[in-house]
Design a protein around this nucleic acid. Structure first.
Lengths: 148, 148
DNA sequence: GGTCTAACTGAAATTTGATTTCAATTAGAC
DNA sequence: GTCTAATTGAAATCAAATTTCAGTTAGACC
């Protein structure tokens, strides 16, 4: 599967999710989604805006649509605990978390979190319907270890 | 061990940590630490300020000292992904995480995260020196399940 | 005890991320 | 093509967080 084709398929899937939820497929939304599917990386609202403002998409719309796209399940919020909101595209079969360097902020994805049993146990103990989880691991990357 | 005694011991331990790091034990710092050790709960900077302003501690000092106390290891940052910074006291032998209701924000602590092996594995794979991790589990509490 | 100085403080000003307002535009149903 | 509710961008606003700065204080050293 070529990347462009994958991107196209994702975009159609996303458009259908939007319609299903009763939202329009507007230009700003398409531009933002295309950008995320091309980049396949997390980004702050300001980073997204920097990337899409030349297509006439304002910062307000970026904020509004990042929230809306996350609510519909096209994006998800991630958090590196540095005071910035971030979003990343939800890609099929891509459950991962982030290992974050406390020195330079460099981020590495990892995939083996294995927290299903914990979720079940928590649900049983608390009566919560458990939805999802977020995990951040912190440390220092090789370069930052040397610099100290 | 009575609570007041525990609080006292924690405070002395904390004062020693401060001194060791080259910081002074000022009145605002003592007030903030005492409050956290008494309450033993997470709080936002504004909540802390509301609690300590009558002792003459300004909001600026609250922000500055929450950050400093976290850096020294007396407090730690926690995050419920609702856009507010939060801090909680670091208590001996108290490694826990939070189960958060996406409906009403209610928070339940839990203690069995069992991520040591994952941390080791990540360290081996990436060369990072792994420090710590943060985990948030999301769902809906009983009451919020009914309300939907 | 007193003296000294760098660390620290609170108040005010400022910055900045995020939200709200509102008149103009547009997607998409008909 | 027509219509209308959803959506937009710019500007105003809000609020969290940070910076500035002159005054205060903890605690090291007599």
């Amino acid at each position: 599967m070529k990347n462009s084709e994958g991107s196209q398929a994702l975009l159609e899937e996303a458009a259908s999710k939007l319609r299903q939820a009763g939202y329009k497929l507007t230009r700003p939304r398409r531009v933002i989604m295309e950008w995320f599917y091309r980049k396949q990386e997390h980004a702050t609202p300001h980073q997204v805006h920097a990337a899409v403002k030349d297509f006439g998409v304002g910062l307000t719309s970026v904020y509004r649509n990042l929230e809306l796209l996350a609510q519909v399940g096209i994006l998800r919020q991630v958090c590196f605990h540095d005071g910035y909101q971030r979003y990343e595209p939800v890609l099929p079969g891509d459950h991962h978390h982030h290992l974050i360097c406390s020195g330079c902020g460099k981020v590495v994805k990892f995939f083996n979190c294995d927290l299903d049993k914990l979720e079940e146990q928590l649900a049983a103990e608390t009566g919560y319907v458990v939805d999802r989880h977020m995990l951040q691991v912190f440390g220092y990357c090789r370069r930052c270890q040397k610099d100290r």
